[in-house]
Amino acid sequence: MAKTVLKVTNLSASYRKNTVLDNVNFQIEEGSLTGIVGPNGAGKSTLIKTLLHLHPSLTGKIDFYGLPFKKAKRVIGYVPQRGSVDWDFPTNALDVVVMGLYGQIGWLKRPSRAHRKLAYEALEKMDMAPYADRQISQLSGGQQQRVFLARALVQDAEFYFMDEPLAGVDATTEKAIMAILKELKDEGKTVMVVHHDLQTVTDYFDHVLFLNRTVKEHGLTDSVFTKENIMKTYGGKMQRIVEGGSHVVHSN
């Protein structure tokens, strides 16, 4: 039985008066690669932000490795949605990755050559080394996503959260990112990913968490990724589900 690394009990959160998360309960095992799926507005991003204290929770308890978030913060890495920053900001790819090390470098201290080397290696891992000096606004969407991933990798965390890392990227980048996620899993690290494409869930994730305001189902992909659970999460919006759940079509 694998160790439980995240335990969420009765979590709820809201934006002003709209409750987006209500009575969310789940546990994550060490070394699992979990896809969080659900319709638009189901609270997927909010769930991640609330777990990482980037969004206030109304009720509930969050335990990372049996500790509150503040104490476990150092071993947690987060890859936000690409649109969350202004890519026109005057800086280059390497510099953005170095930002991942700011916590280790220490406040008010300047990054050293060794830090830059670590960042460069993270970029190499993402096949982005040739773009290290490139101004970030001149990178394609997929390349920007890889830079964000490299920034998370360089933190050398134990638990990674990623908010739609595959949104709007081309097939090559998608493959590169998935290869890295598998690698992280093989190293025994835990990864949770907000995911949109139901067709690839079975290929990419060993666990799946169905979310729509609350956890609809959670478990091994092989046993819970079923037609019934998709219907239960997405409601009547899923019009046509071809047998085997491999050709799912969204009606809107």
């Binding site: 900001f89 800086t91 953005v96 991942g100 916590g103 406040w107 300047r110 990054p111 920034r151």
Partner: peptide, 16 residues
């Protein structure tokens, strides 16, 4: 360094 992080990606800054 802190100003740069704060201006470019405040959420990441908070995470760190």
């Amino acid at each position: 360094k802190e100003w740069k992080l704060f201006l470019f990606d405040p959420q990441h800054a908070k995470g760190l």
